[in-house]
Write a protein that binds this DNA or RNA. Structure first.
Length: 156
DNA sequence: AGGTTGATTGTTTTA
DNA sequence: TAAAACAATCAACCT
């Protein structure tokens, strides 16, 4: 966050994490480019943490409370502060959703792995050499049905 | 015009 | 185990 457009163009110094992003030629922030980062065509993004789940809702209400506020950092600060203000009971539902998302993430990851397997890219060294030959000739894994079961837990 | 940063915390990942 | 990075967002700012 020390962007000095004066003379030096070293304004992209954000701190630490974004720096690595700079290393990669990828434009999007999502482009995680570690040294050994493999090229992932469509790797499932990480599941949002309970805080993020809470933030999604918090942002809406925050914007209503502060329609003039447009900076994302404002919601971040307020959200973070509010988040800590919440009790475990309050965070419980958010964590529950986060956990659910994580569950789906694992499923997506499995599908992703299978997809990768389908790809004839032997560039990656996989430790699953003992795996039996796949018999499923046609396996479409891009089918996701979201079933939201309404569980009402109000015991505090 | 488009890419990128900013700020929060939590979870995921890799070394 | 630990540390780093990334997950969304939206407008402003830089190239």
């Amino acid at each position: 966050m020390e962007r000095k457009n004066k003379n030096g163009k070293t304004y992209l110094v954000v701190g630490k994490r974004k720096a690595a992003l700079r290393a990669g030629k990828s434009s999007s922030k999502r482009a995680k480019n570690v040294k050994s980062a493999k090229k992932d065509p469509n790797k499932p993004k990480r599941p949002p943490s309970a805080f993020f789940v809470f933030l999604e809702e918090f942002r809406k209400v925050y914007k209503q409370e502060h329609p003039n506020i447009k900076a994302v950092s404002a919601v971040g600060k307020a959200g973070g502060e509010k988040w800590k203000s919440l009790t475990d009971s309050e965070k419980a539902p958010y964590e529950a959703k986060a956990a659910k998302r994580k569950s789906d993430y694992e499923k997506l990851m499995t599908a992703y792995n299978k997809k990768r397997e389908s790809s004839d890219d032997e560039d990656e060294e996989e430790s699953e050499k003992s795996k039996s030959e796949v018999h499923d000739r046609d396996d479409e894994i891009e089918e996701e049905e979201e079933e939201d079961e309404e569980e009402d837990e109000d015991d505090d």
